[in-house]
Write a protein that binds this DNA or RNA. Structure first.
Lengths: 226, 226
DNA sequence: CGGCATCCGTGACGATACTG
DNA sequence: CAGTATCGTCACGGATGCCG
């Protein structure tokens, strides 16, 4: 009689029942939509409705259920905003932010599949953050880079990312150390590793604004490793 | 009229329909069991029945369906063995082997969840390969390490892994450069990054057999990076 | 309006049985 | 050995309703 469910109400989700680190990870984040919710929350705290808007296709009950699972799994917390705004946001815990390497690895592997944009495909600017984080992985200078694409803007943190800091975020940055203006095609090529940012700047296909050390490094003043 | 399915027979699988590298990756490998099948095939070619045996809980039709999806997605190929053995094996393509960083990242994140072994958990020796590969990531000497656990044996390739070579495999190695004898608890601690192999060898909780440069490095003759 | 809960149709999943 | 067939169950996707 396998999978005997004791009458506990929370009705624990289906497990792979394998003593394996990968299987345990997939027990937590292997369900449909979960890793994409993490991708959204890696950009910062978000409200339920905003998540719904940036995850086209997810149904309301599935999103609510996943968020509840993620709370129970210690991936995210629900935080009530101060009175002026009568709303609450969902926010990754440090454990949840630990999924960043998983997401960047997945993005690196999936980037070559971004060759054609299908007419049914949704787009958000910050979805380019994960591939670009990989492309700029070798930078020595830490700081915040604002990225401007035709699809919109986002910002990301270069260099060693502190444990408590978010790796990227929605919209423009408060005080960016550098500003990166890119076409979609260049962003895709960078994500695929087909060219470096220094090469794209040299070709005039990318533009770096700013004069700080990070901006200089982005332009190729110091070659990033590998 | 969303998601209008044209009468094409292959009935394309459900897609996230997002122009995002991560979403594209999950379109390919986001289905239940797929990444665990990849974990199995990363150890080398396997027959259908062997996969069924090492993936307890998967049903026959789901395994057949996933393998077909993986063939169609260019992740794996089915290869018929020469006449003596009237069977065929499934084998990862180079594209499929590119998922190794995704699997190691997932294993690294999931390793802390391996604190208790539940009575329903299945175990295979080679499931420890991914966390151990991470733990030995900084090694400078390339070679093949045979790992002996209470649960069984497997082997893995250290140093820079050539594109065509498998990162790990089932059972003992043909001609190992070093041999690693571990208890389960030490294997878990290594996977969690709680200690280094040199420390475990120093404590006598791990044993390294062999005299080549790789064996020396494993013992801590040269400290692995970080 | 934000944050779900409910209902329903479809399809994916899991277990078993069966076949070439 | 390597799957296909069948079937019951559950998860998913879409729409709508409720409630603070």
């Amino acid at each position: 009689m396998p999978r005997q469910q004791q009458p506990a109400r929370p009705a624990r989700r289906r497990s792979y029942d394998q003593f394996c680190a990968t299987a345990r990870a997939l027990d937590s984040v292997g369900d449909r939509w979960t890793l994409l919710i993490v991708r959204e929350l890696l950009a910062g705290p978000r409200r339920y409705t905003d998540l719904l808007a940036d995850l086209p296709g997810v149904s309301t009950d599935v999103l609510a259920s996943r968020l509840k699972d993620m709370e129970q799994g210690g991936l995210a917390v629900r935080r009530r905003l101060p009175p002026p705004a009568a709303a609450s946001v969902y926010e990754l815990t440090e454990h949840g932010r630990g999924l960043l390497p998983v997401l960047t690895a997945l993005a690196g592997w999936g980037a070559p599949a971004l060759d054609e944009r299908r007419p049914t495909d949704a787009v958000r600017a910050h979805w380019f953050a994960l591939p670009l984080l990989r492309a700029l992985d070798g930078l020595t200078h830490a700081g915040v880079v604002e990225v401007r694409l035709a699809e919109g803007e986002f910002h990301m943190r270069t260099g060693v990312v502190a444990a408590g800091a978010e790796a990227y975020g929605y919209g423009p940055a408060d005080r960016p150390d550098a500003c990166l203006v890119l076409g979609t095609d260049v962003a895709l090529a960078l994500g695929r590793g087909e060219c470096t940012l220094a090469e794209a700047v040299g070709d005039g296909r990318a533009e770096v604004l700013g004069e700080g050390p990070l901006a200089v490094e982005l332009r190729g003043g110091q070659q990033p490793r590998h």
